[in-house]
Design a protein around this nucleic acid. Sequence first.
DNA 1: CTGAATTTTCAGTAATTTGTGAAAATTGTA
DNA 2: TACAATTTTCACAAATTACTGAAAATTCAG
Lengths: 180, 180
Amino acid sequence: MKITAMTQSLVLHFGEMGSRWGLNRTLGQMYAVIVLTEAPLNADQISEALQISRSNVSMGLKELKSWNLIKLQHIPGDRKEYFSAPSDIWEIARTLVVERRKRELDPTLSTLRDALMEQPSNESDEYTQMRVKQMHDLMEMVTLWTNEMQGMSSEKLATLLKMGEGISKILDVKDKLLLR
Amino acid sequence: MKITAMTQSLVLHFGEMGSRWGLNRTLGQMYAVIVLTEAPLNADQISEALQISRSNVSMGLKELKSWNLIKLQHIPGDRKEYFSAPSDIWEIARTLVVERRKRELDPTLSTLRDALMEQPSNESDEYTQMRVKQMHDLMEMVTLWTNEMQGMSSEKLATLLKMGEGISKILDVKDKLLLR
DNA sequence: CTGAATTTTCAGTAATTTGTGAAAATTGTA
DNA sequence: TACAATTTTCACAAATTACTGAAAATTCAG
């Protein structure tokens, strides 16, 4: 499959960024081409578009599946598997947030909890546990938020995010009008 | 410098996580020991605590400086440089968010803008641009939010984050009571 | 059930990233 | 200014991660 110059340059950029996003170059490129192309793509097309081996594509697809970022579909009369990204960009964002949380926060939260269970052996450990507690509480709040986000419709999420600079004011209003 | 068993196990964990956080193993370990230790540390102490070379510490500190994650201080009568993390965990979180945004979002936002300026050469490019527009708008909103976050006090940030499941309700209330 | 089409696995290699020691540069005090 | 203490740089080595082709496994139409 041939890709346009515009797609090509975007694909290269997302490849560069891939590693910063906890993926890697190839995964970034693969997801870019899938997201930016309207029609579902099969592995051979991706392999050709990105000039990477078929086996590399297979491994990449496996990874993208584990991130829940792609949808598998079949085309009548064609035995190949075709992949596409959700058409709703908010759905992609929601998925990314929750999957990153799983990978970046959950394991740490569990380790922090373990550390809090231990008996501090001296003042140094007491300070350490104090810090651990702070981190733990913060991360738990972030987890609550990402869970909340999962339950929100794309419309509501868009509204919330659009509030941007308004959020601080809403907080004030809430304090003043609703909770006292 | 000797570190306690508790700190040791936390340091190892943060090392593991380091790479998932856009840092790397050593950087994760270094920041962990700095955050979890009450007293400011010098490069030799870090080198000894983590069993890594002095030059590696130097490079790591350089990187942590570029992330604005550590504070340099001097101890009277000692020529060495000592480093510590902010005592306010929210300050650390704010810094992490803005620095990650700089590295993970800003460059992409700029690339997406460029792509939107181009003239689509066919329908395929038109679809691509539509997707690019969606991503661009979403990322711009996230940027707005992180900017907003920078201006918020730790107390306010904690209040906001604590709202957790309440956020959705606040949104509803805002719609009903305040904007009509 | 058979076999061609398709996908996955995996061992070896290639590419990239990280870590080290030695040397250079910088700092600050006497 | 001179020099010892300290930090930084950098070329190379070590470790890790990513990619490939070939072979194995799976799928499904006939």
